Simulated assay, not measured.
Amino acid sequence: MKYSIALLFFIWSVSSTAQDISGVYLLHTNTEKFELKRTLTLHQDGTFSFHNYKRDENGIPKETNTYGKGYWQIDKKVVSFSSSSLDDKFTLDFNETNARYISKSPRDTSDRVIKTALRFYQSNLFWVKGMTLEKQ
């Protein structure tokens, strides 16, 4: 009986501290002649979708939309991405892409504000490396 109560307490404590990182992460820059919007949606079932929108009044073409999709998994604070299949619409290859999950520690009692975000540190896409997307 003591062991079963201890086991239940252990399972409850582990599940209550598990991090749920699913949600929408966004990077948005907007000026009069330029707009950049990158949206990453992490679904609870372990899949993700990515949309990159760019409008540049001086560019050719003026607007571009690129998409990516695949699977994600987290190990401690490292989120790993992989693309399942590429086609005409989903052209971004997220294989070998890793990001760090950034959040304020529950033990941190200071008043400083740390926004929940993903910071990419490894990717085959040159413009993804170093990118930070904040959780909405």
Score class of each variant (00 low, 15 high):
7 L>Q: 14
10 F>V: 06
12 W>G: 03
9 F>I: 08
40 L>K: 07
13 S>I: 07
29 T>L: 11
14 V>Q: 01
40 L>E: 05
25 Y>F: 02
35 E>L: 09
41 T>W: 11
24 V>H: 08
43 H>F: 15
38 R>H: 14
8 L>H: 07
20 D>F: 08
43 H>Y: 15
21 I>Q: 01
7 L>R: 13
10 F>M: 06
40 L>N: 08
12 W>P: 00
20 D>C: 05
25 Y>L: 03
35 E>H: 12
32 E>S: 09
44 Q>E: 10
21 I>W: 08
33 K>G: 08
34 F>L: 12
30 N>W: 12
8 L>N: 11
20 D>T: 12
8 L>E: 10
25 Y>N: 01
44 Q>F: 02
33 K>Q: 13
38 R>D: 11
44 Q>A: 06
23 G>M: 13
37 K>C: 04
26 L>N: 11
25 Y>T: 05
19 Q>G: 00
18 A>Y: 01
38 R>F: 15
15 S>R: 15
16 S>Y: 06
27 L>W: 04
31 T>I: 09
28 H>G: 04
30 N>E: 15
36 L>W: 05
13 S>L: 02
11 I>H: 02
34 F>P: 01
18 A>F: 04
16 S>F: 05
21 I>H: 02
22 S>I: 05
26 L>T: 12
35 E>V: 10
11 I>Y: 09
40 L>F: 15
19 Q>V: 07
23 G>S: 10
11 I>L: 13
28 H>Q: 12
8 L>F: 15
9 F>P: 00
22 S>V: 09
16 S>H: 05
41 T>C: 05
13 S>C: 03
25 Y>R: 05
28 H>V: 08
39 T>V: 14
43 H>C: 03
20 D>N: 14
27 L>A: 02
17 T>C: 11
29 T>G: 00
40 L>D: 02
14 V>C: 00
22 S>R: 09
17 T>N: 14
19 Q>Y: 09
29 T>Q: 08
36 L>S: 05
36 L>Q: 06
11 I>G: 01
26 L>Q: 13
32 E>T: 13
30 N>C: 11
23 G>W: 12
43 H>R: 11
10 F>W: 07
32 E>K: 15
39 T>I: 15
19 Q>A: 06
33 K>I: 12
12 W>E: 05
9 F>D: 04
23 G>T: 08
14 V>Y: 00
40 L>A: 08
16 S>V: 09
7 L>M: 13
18 A>R: 01
26 L>P: 00
31 T>W: 13
27 L>E: 04
29 T>Y: 10
27 L>H: 10
16 S>C: 07
28 H>A: 07
28 H>I: 08
32 E>G: 05
7 L>I: 15
9 F>C: 09
39 T>C: 03
7 L>H: 11
15 S>T: 14
15 S>Q: 14
15 S>A: 13
25 Y>S: 02
